[in-house]
Nucleic acid binder design. Structure first.
Lengths: 251, 251
DNA sequence: CGCGTGCTTGAACATTATCAAACAGTGTGG
DNA sequence: CCACACTGTTTGATAATGTTCAAGCACGCG
């Protein structure tokens, strides 16, 4: 939410100020350590030359499934969701995108997923063509992004395990711990205070559950004094060990 | 199974014959069109120089979670499974690996998943170091493998949707259609005869179901004359349209 | 021929979904 | 400034899908 406040309300507002590749937004407490933001260097300088800063208001679509895949993006501030749909409307959020995350990569001509801002978001947009030229001309960039894709794939596989084999409560615990690690807005609390930028429906679609189940389980965890819920979107982890036990994560 | 029969029974048998990068095994009907095997060219020639052909008997482990990630692999013949486990033994098969597929890519020092042969399998092994040198020195190779990772990620996201939002019968239908497309061993039948190299437990762990449910649903589909089951591992798609309707796939 | 593994089938059960309604928080207009 | 409407959250009762436990069956192999 801190990031969101720093961005402007208007959507699709373009600024031609050049974007720093590796720098986290000033309003972010620190870059995520799960998906590290590459440090500023030669690759960053290259990317800076072709990047354009853009702002999207909450709810706005950044890319849409089926549209020509002409750009790739990096999140600078705010939060977004990557969405896949079934024909009848059932929804899966494949990923929440936070500062430092890239999105929009695809091998096909069109995007295969939709990305929407769940909080006012700032992103840097790179032309796909320019990005590809960078990849071909700069082996270091190629290596870096190949490594990034390996990590993404690994994260996705963890989620396959979560969706395929974990119970509802295990899923929620895993999610809360991951969010706490990615987005520890309060260093003072040891990374245990989480400001959720997404609503219950988003969490449900991310965990393969229903809104009702997510709500009930959060209530249950609060009843067991494992978490606190000062407000609906503010979670405080009180007993991290218990949450880790519940999550059944090997990590 | 055709591929498996062509390979030798002994495991970990090394042959220093050089491996053709893009060529499908002679015993394979045709390369998968879902995950195209890159055609032979300069990149292939590069890889050939550092590849070693290896055979693994059914059930053998090729790579193991936690071990140093020293190699990357390409499947030439047979079939393998990529596995993730929870501490209590619950299992998720993140992918079935068939001829043309690569595996073993990771950004971390150790493998994050286990790969086992489900049928006698032939793979080509490349040293990770040599592969990385290739990526850095050959922009075309970099681009190709980056694209491959994009595809892998997209496939994984489709499976997130499947595991998160599809019912058991939809999952099974989706799986059967995908297998038919990947592994149409009988061209004469229009790609509708499938020889499943994996057992029911593997299918269950791939679809996030139990063996019993998989078995019941296969029986149900046979009862509705949508598929035939000449043997337990031989599926014939009789009504592809019905199966596609059931699968709820947008594709 | 008998054993073992994997597949199928059945009955009871559990977890989570569905349907429904009340509640809370926020922003808007009177 | 308060009432109202809207959206999102919580809670409850019921139902369904898929799991669990259990047993029988079939095929392949020694």
């Amino acid at each position: 939410m801190v990031q969101a406040l720093a961005t402007q309300r208007s959507s699709e507002q373009t600024s031609h100020r050049r974007a720093a590749f590796g720098s986290a937004p000033a309003t972010s407490a620190r870059p995520s350590h799960l998906r590290p933001v590459p440090a500023g260097d030669a690759v960053s300088a290259e990317l800076d030359r072709i990047g354009t800063v853009m702002n999207y208001a909450r709810g706005r679509m950044v890319i849409e499934e089926g549209n020509p895949a002409e750009y790739v993006y990096k999140v600078v501030g705010g939060a977004l969701r990557s969405v896949r749909l079934l024909p009848d409307g059932r929804r899966c959020i494949t990923n929440f995108l936070l500062p430092g995350d890239f999105f929009g990569f695809t091998e096909s001509r069109e995007y295969l997923h939709t990305v929407e801002a769940i909080a006012d978001a700032t992103v840097v947009r790179y032309s796909r063509r320019g990005f590809e030229v960078l990849l071909e001309g700069n082996p270091r960039a190629g290596r870096r992004f190949f490594g990034l894709m390996c990590q993404e794939l690994s994260v996705a596989q963890d989620r396959l395990l979560l969706l395929g084999r974990k119970h509802a409560l295990e899923r929620l615990a895993t999610f809360l711990l991951a969010m706490a690690d990615r987005k520890s807005s309060a260093i003072a609390t040891g990374g245990n205070a989480i400001e959720l930028p997404m609503n219950r429906t988003d969490v449900a679609d991310y965990l393969g559950l229903t809104v009702e189940t997510v709500s009930r389980l959060l209530t249950q965890l609060r009843g067991r004094r494992i978490i606190d819920l000062p407000t609906a979107n503010h979670v405080v982890i009180l007993k991290r060990d218990d949450l880790e036990d519940i999550s059944s994560s090997q990590a």
